[in-house]
Each structure stands twice: as C-alpha cells, then as structure tokens.
Design a protein around this nucleic acid. Structure first.
Length: 648
DNA sequence: AGTTCGTGTCATCAG
DNA sequence: CGCTGATGACACGAA
C-alpha cells in the first residue's frame, strides 16, 4: 500500500509539473504533507537532545545491544536524525542551488525542445563538454558522483545536442534509473515554489489588468473582468488568506521531505558527503590507522562518525585496525570488511592467542620511530605515554614500574600501550596479568562503547583461581607499565589481583563475590570500590560530555534551519502583502467602473463614495450603501463599548 | 602568561 | 539500602 501510494505521489508530482507548465495549478501539498509527515517528525523531532539517551547507541548498534533499556524507541530517532544531520551538514543553505540544478535537469528530461537555451547557458560554464560532445560527454557522465551540478550539465548537453527523439540517447538509457530518481527532487522543488510562482503570475496578471496601456474599455469586457475578479476573490483570495498558515506547514514539509524522501538527492548530496568522507578517510592515513591501533585515546570524542559506514563501535575499531594491520595496511575497504559481524564472531571465536601473535608480529614490524610519532598526538591523559611499546626500557617509568612489579605483588605486565588491542573484550580471567593488559584501553577510547562488551568475558570466563602469572623478561620489556593509571598503580600497591577494567566491568554479583571471597583487607575493599566507582563514573562522564556536544550540535543546526526558514517566511510575507495590495487596488478600480455604469432610480450614476459592491457566497454581486460606522476603526469600537457601558 | 580544550574526579541526585 | 547512571563543578595538563 505504501509503495502504491508512493508511485501515486510521484505520478501526481509529475502531473502537477505538466499542469503547472500550462498554467494550471494542482495543489497536492496537502497530500504530500500527509505522505511525508513521518519524516518531518523525524526531522523536527522533539528536542530531546538532553533526554537521557545514550549517544553511543548510534555507534554500537552493530553490536546487538544498542537499544537503551530506558528509551529504545529513541534509538531509531537518533539514527534517523543523524542521517539527516549528515545531509544537513553538507550545507543546508546550499541545497536549494542543487535543487535548481535538478530542475534544469528535469526540464531537460521532460521538455527536450527547450533544451537549447539551457544548453547554451550551461555551455558557458561547461564549454569543455561542448567541444567534445560525444564519448567524452559520456565519459564525464560516468563520473556522475562528482557533483550534482555536473550531472545536470552533462545531461543537458547531451540532450541539447542529440535529442532523444532520435532514440540515440544511450546515455539516457544507461542513466535511466538515475534520471527517474533524479526527477523526484524537481517536482518537490516546484511544489515548494508553486504557490510562489502562482502568486507571481497572479501579480503579473493583476498588473496587466491594471496597466492603463493594456486596459481595455470597460464597456467591452467588464463582465469577463468581473468573473475573473470574482474567481480570484473566491478562490485565490481565500488562498491568500490562508497562504501564510499554509506556508507555515508547507515550509515544514518542503525541506525535510525533499531531503529525506528523495534518494537521488541524497545520493547527490552524498557525492559531496562521500567526498568529504573520503577526504576524511584519506586524511586518516595509514599512520592514523596505526595510531588508532595503538592509541584509542586520540580523537574518539572529537570527531563524529563521518558516515554510517564509519559508525563503528568500540568493539569494531580494534578489530578493524588489526585487520588493517595484518592485511593490507593501506586498504580502507578492509575496515568495512572487518566490520562484518561474521568476521567479529570469527575473531571472537579465535580467542586471544592468534590475535596476540598477529599483533606481536605487527608490532615488531613497525618502526619504533613511527610509533613514537604516532604517540605524540594530543589527548594524552595521565596514563598516556610518549614512548613506543617496542622501545625496551625507553622510559624511566618502565624500569621503575618493572621493579615495582617485581618488588610488590609481581603483578607485572601492565601496559597501556596496547590500548586498542582488539582482544580487550576477550580477556580471560585466567590470563589476568597477561603481557597484553587491556585495562587502559577503555580509558582512552572515547568512542564510549557499551560496557556490556567488556562484560561478556567476565560472564563466560570464571575468575576463580586468579593468579598473577610472572612474566618473562621479554614480555616485561615489551610491554612496560609506564603509563598506568593512578588506580592501576594503587591496585598494584595494594596487591589487588585484578585490573581496573575487570574491577569496573565485572557484574555486581561477581564484584561482591570478589570482595567477600578473596580475604581482602578493608583498605583493599575500599580501594576496589573506589576503583569501580571511579571507572564507572569516568565512562559516565565521557558519555555525558559526548551527549552534551551532540545536543549543542543539534541545537546549532536547528538554529540554522530556523533562520533559513524565517528568511523564506519573510519573503513569502512580503510577496503576499504585495499581492494583496495589488488585488485591493484592482477591486477598487473595478468597483468604480461598475458603479459608474449603474444608475439609480432617478437615472443618475451611483456615487462610488456612497455605494459599494458586495459579493455574496452564491456569486451574486449586490450594490450596498457604504456603512460608515462599520468602517470605523478601533476608536469606534471603543465608543460602542462606552455606550454599552453607559446603558448598563 | 592567559585561554581553551580535553579529561579525570568528586559530589549529588534520581531511578 | 546499595548500586548505577547522569550531571554539575572543579582541578589539572596540554596545546
């Protein structure tokens, strides 16, 4: 049913365009507004930016537990809104220009005979296509995603030189689907401006009527004028009265429906978006990808996901990074490939060992200098380091911490250098003090993934019999614990055989069992509780900040959208006032003409100052004497009120 | 040296 | 009552 309605809508739109070309107006705004209302709701949705909805749902929806338990319905809302925002961020102010470009294309597609002038206009800016009309134009047409404007120019050039009536429009046949899709925005645009165009035509008609040069003698065509005027007053004036209110709703429907409904427009915008995204992706060079592998703390909170495809959750990024490292490092497609859910499952099933060996090989194959350069980015927290993981004993902290570990509980192997090691979610409690301790990964990863990711291993893997496994010298030198958080240091100092990540992310029951079953001292219990509280609060703070930034961004976009809408409404208001003034003048003129030709009982012409014409609902025109008191202004009403008060 | 930004932490409240 | 999330406020370090 919805599909049938969609086709009906498209047919109506095209029919409306054709009718508008011959001057007939068909108002399907109401129909369209009803049809696109859900999208409007999405676009203008409740300003719930400050609602307690976890933003990371948008990133974690690949993981299967994206829906917030408290407000799952907003997940879809934010996802839709994010997509709309991405379109908007491409330049909401500039998309009418693109719509004009679509209009050019649409005219060329429907009215091929008129392609000549438009082609000449386009060739002014695209003369290169004229010089090489044949295959080169096709070649250019194959680069459609470059820009929407180029699409239109190419198409019109093709049409102008080789009319499709010859049946030789191979390009159009090839792009038939695209053309059909690209026709959608144009009707919407015309619908958006249909009323405006009609008003302009009305104005032209009125000025033509009031033009003394064109003004015909009233004795000839006065009835026809009156019929026109009455039709105006009955239909169009009503429209004018409700114009502003209609436009209020229409404006609300134009932009979002045009954006969200039309796929081709979205594609055309995506050409820009893809350009931007590709630029971002390209700017994220191999070094940055490697940086993401070794340091998750860099830019997670500072940049939003450039595209839905890049909306990778915390769980996805490390795996993707590993895939890039182990495979083709410079392959961007590998990122998307690694994001596949099945790949994740397979990787999860692989466990730590394979990944560790792969990671070790990758780490050793990387130049330490590169790692140092990578690590010199901003966003370093207290736990961050400036040294590379493969620089043995490069810092003072490494020696101190290593001795620290040896002297104390032997809880060696802490390292925050492997922040983004993909196996952080696959930790085995039996390997709690494995050389690759991922405890710090979450602290620097500002993608704010759901903690459930970390809870998975803790659920499946028992923590009983946790023993610190003394590390070999190689492991200890490879992953020095020079960048431990304060809580990690405290935990070590208190001989707590758990990492901060484990303490924070283990279930409550398990945490209570740990507190009770390990014979911890009160200080140790206090520290464990503090570590857990701080860790959870840290994640909460990160979520809160990200949510706040998203809210600010959303409000800014809302302000821009409303400013744009205000400008349009002001223009509509001015045009409406102008139209109303012109219509009023025309009514006065015609009234004078009619009254001048009417005679009273004594045969004298009626005085226009004393009589007026009233149009009834049935279309009859009646001469009525002017009722002065009724015309009086507010002062008259005041006097009436005073009289009434006196009577009372 | 002052400012801005990002981050961690604490206190507090509500569910 | 305790746990947890959310959030304002503050402090600190880096750019």
């Amino acid at each position: 049913m919805q599909i049938a309605k969609k086709y009906l809508s498209e047919g109506l739109i095209q029919l409306t365009i054709l009718l508008s070309l011959i001057g007939v107006r068909v108002d399907i705004d109401s129909y369209l507004s009803g049809y696109y209302t859900p999208l409007i709701e999405i676009n203008l949705g409740s300003s719930s930016a400050y609602t307690q909805t976890p933003f990371h749902n948008l990133r974690d929806n690949l993981d299967g537990y994206s829906v917030h338990p408290k407000c799952p319905e907003l997940d879809y809302f934010f996802a839709s809104r994010r997509l709309l925002d991405e379109v908007r961020t491409l330049g909401s102010r500039s998309f009418p220009t693109q719509l004009n470009a679509w209009l050019v294309h649409q005219v060329s597609a429907t009215d091929k005979a008129d392609c000549g002038p438009s082609t000449s206009n386009n060739t002014d800016t695209n003369s290169g296509l004229l010089e090489s009309p044949g295959d080169e134009a096709r070649d250019d047409s194959e680069h459609l995603p470059d820009s929407g404007q180029e699409v239109c120019q190419t198409t019109t050039t093709e049409l102008g030189q080789r009319p499709c009536s010859t049946g030789a429009c191979g390009f159009l046949k090839e792009e038939e689907v695209k053309v059909k899709e690209e026709e959608k925005p144009a009707p919407l645009t015309q619908l958006a401006h249909s009323s405006t165009l009609e008003q302009e035509s009305l104005l032209e008609g009125i000025t033509a009527l009031s033009d003394p040069a064109r003004h015909q003698p009233p004795t000839i065509d006065i009835d026809q004028h009156w019929s026109n005027l009455l039709s105006l007053s009955v239909t169009d004036l009503d429209d004018l009265d409700s114009l502003v209110t209609e436009r209020l709703s229409d404006l609300g429907t134009d932009i979002p429906s045009a954006i969200s409904q039309d796929v081709s427009l979205h594609d055309a915008m995506v050409t820009r978006a893809f350009g931007v995204a590709s630029e971002r992706v390209e700017s994220r060079s191999v070094a940055q990808q490697q940086r993401n592998l070794f340091r998750m703390e860099c830019t997670g909170s500072s940049h939003s996901d450039p595209s839905p495809g890049m909306a990778v959750g915390l769980a996805a990024l490390p795996f993707a990074s590993v895939c890039n490292l182990t495979g083709n490092v410079s392959s961007h497609s590998a990122l998307g490939g690694c994001l596949d859910e099945a790949v994740f499952d397979q990787i999860n099933q692989l466990g730590l060992e394979g990944l560790d060996t792969q990671l070790m090989g990758s780490l050793e194959s990387i130049n330490p200098q590169v790692l140092e350069d990578l690590d010199s980015d901003s966003g370093l927290s207290l736990e961050s380091s400036s040294g590379g993981p493969v620089s043995p004993g490069s810092s003072e902290m490494s020696s101190s911490s290593s001795s620290y570990c040896e002297d104390e509980c032997g809880a060696t192997g802490y390292s925050s250098e492997v922040d983004s090691v993909p196996s952080k979610g696959i930790m085995d409690y039996n390997t709690t003090w494995s050389p690759i301790d991922l405890s710090e990964s979450v602290w620097h990863d500002h993608s704010y993934s759901s903690p459930a990711f970390f809870n998975q291993p803790s659920i499946t893997l028992p923590h009983k019999g946790i023993k610190e496994e003394p590390l070999s010298d190689d492991d200890g030198s490879r992953f020095d614990d020079r960048d431990l958080s304060r809580d990690e240091l405290r935990a070590r100092a208190m001989c707590i055989p758990f990492s901060v990540l484990q303490i924070v992310n283990m279930p409550v029951e398990e945490f209570l069992e740990v507190l009770d079953g390990h014979g911890f001292s009160p200080d140790q219990v206090t520290l464990l509780r503090d570590i857990r509280r701080r860790g959870k609060n840290k994640l909460a703070a990160q979520n809160c900040r990200k949510r706040k930034l998203d809210a600010i961004t959303g409000l800014q976009e809302e302000v821009e959208r409303l400013q744009f809408q205000r400008g349009r409404l002001l223009k509509e208001k001015q045009l409406t006032a102008k139209t109303m003034g012109a219509v009023g003048q025309q009514i006065k003129q015609l009234t004078r003409d009619v009254l001048a030709r009417l005679r009273d009982s004594s045969g004298r012409p009626l005085n226009p100052e004393r009589f007026t014409l009233q149009c009834g609902a049935n279309g009859r025109v009646v001469v009525q004497p002017v009722r002065r008191p009724a015309v009086s202004t507010s002062t008259g009403t005041k006097t009436d009120k005073r009289k009434k008060d006196k009577k009372q």
